[in-house]
Amino acid sequence: MTTPVIVGAAETAYTRTPGPDDTAETYLVQAIRLAVADAGFALSDIDGLAVSSFSLKPDHAVDLAVRCGLTLSWIMEDTNGGASGINMLQHAVRAVESGDAEVIVVAAGDRMTNDDFRILATEYNRITKDHVSPMGMIGPNPMFAFLTERHMRAHGLTRHDYGRIAVAQRRWAGLNPGAVYRKPLTLDEYLAAPTVAPPLHRFDCVPPVSGADAIVVTSRGVKPGERGARVLAIGGSINWDNQEGDGLRTGLSDAAPAIWEKASIAPSEADIVSVYDDYPVMVLIQLADLGLVPDGDLRRAVDRIDAHNWPVNTSGGQLSAGQAGTAGGLHGLVEAVTQLRGRAGQRQVNARIAAVSGYGMVAYRYGACANLAILETV
C-alpha cells in the first residue's frame, strides 16, 4: 500500500476587511498555489482536489479546478464546517493509498464579512433557519453560552479559567505573523470585555475572518532535504449522541481511544496539539475527550496551558488567528504540519507527534461532527 505524506501547507493572510474584489474563489486559488509551491510541485502535478467552503457557491470544486487550470482524476467537496479539514484529509489519504490520485490538494476557505456571517449564522442549516433563529437565538453564541455555563457548573470553573486559555493562545499568536490578533491580551482585559451572551464575552467568541488554507498530500514521498508529515491514524464520529446529550462531551470521547490505538501512540506522547477552538470551553472539552486530561482535573490543564509548557494551539488558535469560515477546519492542521516540518519560526517547538481535532456543524445545540488526525514527522 502506498504511504501518503503531507508535504506542503499554506494559509493566506487572514483579514477582517476583505477587498471589493476578494472572493472565496480568490482566497482558495491563492491558498492552493501557495501550498503547491511550498510542496515543491507545479499545478500541473496536481491530480486530486478536495474543497470545503460555505461561500464558494454557486460554484463548486470543479469550478475551482477550472480556475486553477487543474486536470484531475479525483475530486470531492465537503460541507461539514469545522470537521471538514480532517474529513477531507481522511478521504485524500485513502485516495492516495488506493492509487486514485498521486498529488492531492485539500483546501478550505471563505470570504466572511459581517453581512456574510450574519446570513450564514441565520441560515446555516434547516434546523437553524426553521427552529433556532425564529427563537431569537441568532448564531452559535447563545448555544455555546449555555454549554459554557453547564461546563462551569460541572467542573467548578470560572470565567477566570477560560480567560487564561484565551490569554495563553494570544501569546502564541504574538509569534505568528499570520494571526489577525497579535497584540498581547491581559486577563483583566479579557474579564472586562463587553458581554456577548452571558457568560460569554468578546474574547470568548471566535472572530470571523476571510482567508483560506491548503495542504498537499502525495504518494511521491518527501523531497531530499525536506520534512513532511504522515498520518498515523485518522477517524471521527458523526452525530454520536443524536443531539440528546448535554454537549459536555463530543464524538471524540467515543472515537479517540480506537484512533490512538491504531496509531500505536498514547495520548501522552503527543508533542503538539491543535484543537478546534471556536470557544475556550471547546478547548477543554476536546482535550478531555482526547484523553489528554487523564486525571480529569481541568483547572490543572489550564495551568499547563497558561504556563506555556503545553503546546496547545500554537498558532494562536482561531480565537486569535481568526476563523476563515470552513478554513477553520484546516487551520489547526496547517499549523501542526508546519510545526512537524520545522517551519514555525519563532513559535517552533520540538515536535515529532501531533494530534489535531476537528469539530463543527452545530445542529440543535452543539456540534454534531468531531474527528481526529494523529500525525508524525518524516
Rank of each mutant, 00 (worst) to 15 (best):
T2Y: 00
Y27F: 15
L70D: 09
V349I: 06
T377G: 14
D116A: 07
E11Y: 01
L284Q: 13
V103E: 05
E123L: 04
Q286P: 06
E102Y: 02
V29P: 10
W172M: 06
A301Y: 04
M1R: 14
T2V: 04
D303T: 13
S264P: 02
V93L: 04
A355Y: 02
V275R: 02
G156A: 11
H60G: 14
E376F: 00
A192M: 09
L333M: 07
Y162P: 08
T377C: 06
D78L: 08
A145N: 09
D297W: 00
Q318I: 07
K129S: 11
A336C: 12
G139A: 02
I46G: 12
A363R: 06
G317S: 07
D295T: 14
E335R: 00
H308E: 11
V337C: 04
L191S: 10
V93H: 13
R159A: 14
V36H: 02
S253W: 06
F146H: 12
Y279D: 00
R230M: 11
P20H: 05
N313L: 05
L340Q: 02
A324H: 06
D47M: 06
I6F: 06
G228N: 09
L49D: 08
L89F: 11
R153N: 14
V275K: 07
R94V: 07
P280G: 10
Y181K: 15
D271C: 08
A166C: 10
